[in-house]
Computed example of a mutant assay.
Amino acid sequence: MVSSPTHESDQPHQGWVLKAGKWVLAEDPVLSRPEGDVTEAIKAAGYRSWTSVGHEYATPLKLTVWSRSEKPSYLFDLEGAEQSEWVYADTLPDALVLLNQLAPTLQALTITDQVAQAEPKTMSVFADILDHLHGRSRDKNGILRN
């Protein structure tokens, strides 16, 4: 996939669609709508929220996946701190391929999101998990054992 498609004023808006494992340009079903608000345009195009990960301002990237019965059936909205981009997946198998490609990023976002929401009283749980992963143990005072 290359960068976002450019738009000529006399042409319909185009977007990237993952279709049968290949990226193709097709008419963008959201940007070609007259609604001014993006969320309203997404809903007017028939998309409904399917899943999301990350919280605005708490993680470096938020992913929201929208779905509808008409193709392209899935809209992947990637929101960064400065900019938002989206791509489409034609069918559920295409959406699963794209989710698989994004899995390492999504996993990192999930962990970052959980740490960002942790309360001071639960931080010891994270320390215990890290100690276990690294084969470390602590005494009753919290001091690492050799």
Rank of each mutant, 00 (worst) to 15 (best):
A103I: 03
R138V: 08
Q14H: 10
Q11I: 00
G36M: 11
G135E: 10
S49A: 08
D10H: 09
P12K: 06
A127W: 12
Q117V: 14
M123E: 13
A81Y: 05
K43E: 13
A103P: 02
A45Y: 11
G46A: 04
L25D: 04
L106W: 01
H134P: 05
D77H: 13
W66V: 03
A89H: 09
S84F: 03
R33L: 15
Y74S: 06
M123Q: 14
L31C: 07
D37F: 08
R136P: 11
P104S: 05
P93F: 00
G54H: 01
G15M: 07
K121A: 13
I111P: 00
P72V: 00
Q101L: 13
E85A: 09
P93W: 07
G135Q: 00
E85T: 05
S124H: 15
A95I: 10
T51S: 01
D113C: 05
K43G: 01
S52M: 04
I111A: 05
G142Q: 14
K22M: 10
N141I: 00
V115T: 02
W50S: 11
E40K: 10
N146C: 01
T39C: 02
Q107F: 03
W66M: 04
S49H: 12
Q101Y: 11
E85F: 15
H132Q: 12
K22T: 13
F76S: 05
H13M: 04
V65S: 05
Y47F: 15
S3E: 14
K43N: 08
K19Y: 11
A45K: 04
A20F: 11
R138D: 14
W86K: 01
W50Q: 06
Q11W: 08
A127M: 14
V30K: 01
L133T: 08
K19A: 12
Q14M: 11
L99H: 10
L78F: 12
L130I: 15
T6Q: 11
A103L: 08
E70F: 00
L98Q: 13
G15K: 05
R136L: 15
G15E: 10
S137Y: 12
R68P: 12
D77C: 09
Q107V: 06
E35S: 05
L75W: 05
T59M: 01
L109I: 04
G36T: 13
R68E: 10
P60H: 08
A103K: 03
L99T: 14
V2K: 00
T112Q: 01
T91L: 02
L75V: 09
K62V: 15
Q83G: 01
G15T: 11
S137N: 13
Y74E: 03
S69T: 07
A41N: 02
F76T: 09
W50F: 15
Q114F: 09
P34D: 10
S3H: 09
